[in-house]
């Protein structure tokens, strides 16, 4: 690679990977699919002296769908797209994964890479936030689990210590009459970073009218992907009328802190949020009612 000179390490266990990362600290980076890391190196943005390949570390690629949902850190977007259990209430996961880059990127890009990048425009992360995901990290001092929401600190910035490996993402199983949805707006249909994206989850009461639980998460309109608690609270316990969904969209747009850049103005991003949030909620509503 142009100008890059690093030593390459290929641990064969989580413990060994963590030990290498602890030994080299800030000079080391884990390598999963490489769809972000190798480009950053190629551009000269970062110049790690040590790259720790995760390809031979066992225990990172599992998917659990019975009861709680677990995605190993090394699970690829391709695997999420092809997991049959994500066809129903969890369809938002597939919708988040299938818009990431082209097939070549999804075939190797991973869940942990998408999270640890901490891009405000990450597409899978809002869906994980809407599913109350926790992340589990393995480090030299043992394992810890914290909420994804608390893990994300700023653009490119997480609560991860240099020695910590993101081993898994865990989400509670969804109650009956729940559904998820993800919508992304970009300048073209494929191979495009989100101008704004929205993930939503709804759980309905037995009559299918009232909202028992709501989650709304946004991408590309704040320094991190974010949940909008105010909009969620405004829905919970309420009948899910068109007006209630519109109001949630307005609250989300108010909570967003978008910037203007080459892709879109802040005002347009805010407008997208106000439109996409009700639309995503409406999809959830139709999907949750459709299960009955």
């Amino acid at each position: 690679m142009t100008g890059a000179h690093f030593d390459y390490h290929e641990p064969t266990s989580i413990a060994e990977a963590v030990e290498l990362a602890a030994r080299f600290g800030d000079e080391a980076r884990f390598l999963a699919g490489g769809t972000d890391l190798l480009i950053q190196i190629q551009r000269g943005r970062i110049a790690p002296r040590h790259v720790i390949g995760l390809h031979r570390v066992p225990g990172l690629t599992g998917v659990e769908t019975n009861g709680r949902i677990v995605l190993g850190g090394g699970v690829t977007h391709r695997t999420i797209e092809r997991t049959p259990a994500f066809g129903g209430a969890l369809r938002g996961l597939v919708e988040g994964a299938e818009v990431i880059g082209g097939h070549q990127v999804r075939n190797v890009g991973t869940v942990a890479g998408n999270i640890v990048n901490a891009s405000p425009a990450a597409d899978l992360v809002p869906v994980l936030l809407a599913l109350d995901a926790d992340v589990t990290l393995a480090g030299t001092r043992g394992e810890r689990t914290l909420s994804l929401e608390r893990f994300l600190l700023g653009p490119g910035h997480t609560d991860r210590h240099p020695d910590e490996l993101l081993t898994a993402v865990t989400m509670p199983g969804l109650p009956a009459r729940s559904a998820t949805a993800f919508l992304k707006a970009g300048r073209r249909k494929a191979m495009e970073i989100s101008v704004a994206c929205v993930a939503a989850r709804l759980t309905l009461d037995a009559a299918g009218e009232r909202c028992l639980a709501a989650r709304i998460a946004l991408g590309a309109v704040a320094p991190t992907t974010v949940r909008v608690h105010a909009a969620e609270r405004a829905l919970e316990g309420q009948p899910l009328t068109a007006e209630a969904l519109r109001r949630a969209g307005a609250l989300a747009a108010e909570a967003a802190q978008p910037i203007s850049d080459v892709r879109a103005s802040a005002g347009f991003r805010r407008h997208l949020v106000s439109v996409l949030v009700p639309r995503a909620l409406h999809r959830c509503l139709e999907r949750a009612r459709g299960q009955a």
Binding site: Y8, G34, H55, Q104, N107
Partner: peptide, 13 residues
């Protein structure tokens, strides 16, 4: 059998 971009894959992997 899977399509990948060889420009962003290290040969060693």
């Amino acid at each position: 059998g899977m399509a990948v971009n060889s420009c962003t894959v290290l040969a060693v992997t």
